[in-house]
Design a protein around this nucleic acid. Structure first.
Lengths: 120, 120
DNA sequence: CCGTCATTTCAACAGCTATTGAAATAATCC
DNA sequence: GGATTATTTCAATAGCTGTTGAAATGACGG
């Protein structure tokens, strides 16, 4: 992930309403949900919501598709995961256990490691 | 993690220079590094850097301590991990494998707002 | 077509943010 | 004490951001 893309994604999430919107979509899963439902759930004016959706979309965090009269927005999980990876990249110069046992992955590990070791 | 805290943390990271600073500190590990070294590494004016450190500190993402003439800044890994957890919280309503195999944790459901089905 | 539903576009405005230069503080060395 | 190094404070300014209201677009049903 590029630095600029990360800043864009973070900026998109660094706003109360957009963060609420994004988390709602994250919880909704890949099928997404219609703009109207989001507006209702979060009590946002439709034009305000469009503005925020645009930001999220420009940052690559959500996608839209039309379905009848509704626009269905969905979170882009790949983008979210890229962002998380970017933040923790190369943390503690590889000594991951020092800083973030749960999330931090040593340097570049794009694929989730096979978790057979955790059988304990 | 509270919503406000998450927005504050994201806002703090949503800026090129601060993101660079934070990632540098993440890579430096818990011992941190002196302001001067950060300034040199990223080619930032010292007063500008102070401004950004303040933002990061107010957001709970870094700590400072004095050591001789230098101020040593260090990333707060706990805050970073809280933030990552917050973003992925309850993702896909527990069906984590749908959206983020590597990072997303099911977390205990925080009572998703009863979703109104949209007409099929 | 006409009405209405769902969403977007546009312009305007108030409030916030990042950077800069000059000056201040704080610790150390001679 | 006085010079030097490291960092912070302060005020000013240009640029960006979020919200609002009014109007436009696009899709569907009768």
């Amino acid at each position: 992930m590029k630095n600029d893309a990360a800043v864009a994604a973070l900026a998109a999430l660094a706003q109360q309403n957009r963060l609420d919107v994004f988390r709602l979509l994250v919880q909704a899963g890949p099928e997404g949900m219609p703009a109207g439902n989001v507006a209702e759930a979060l009590d946002l004016a439709p034009n305000t919501l469009t503005f925020h959706f645009d930001r999220l979309r420009e940052a690559g965090l959500v996608t839209v598709r039309r379905e009848g009269r509704s626009m269905i927005y969905a979170a882009r999980f790949e983008a979210m995961n890229d962002l998380l990876g970017f933040l923790t990249e190369n943390c503690c110069r590889g000594a991951a256990e020092k800083c973030a046992p749960a999330v931090c992955k040593p340097v570049r590990a794009k694929k989730p490691a096979t978790r057979k070791e955790f059988a304990s």
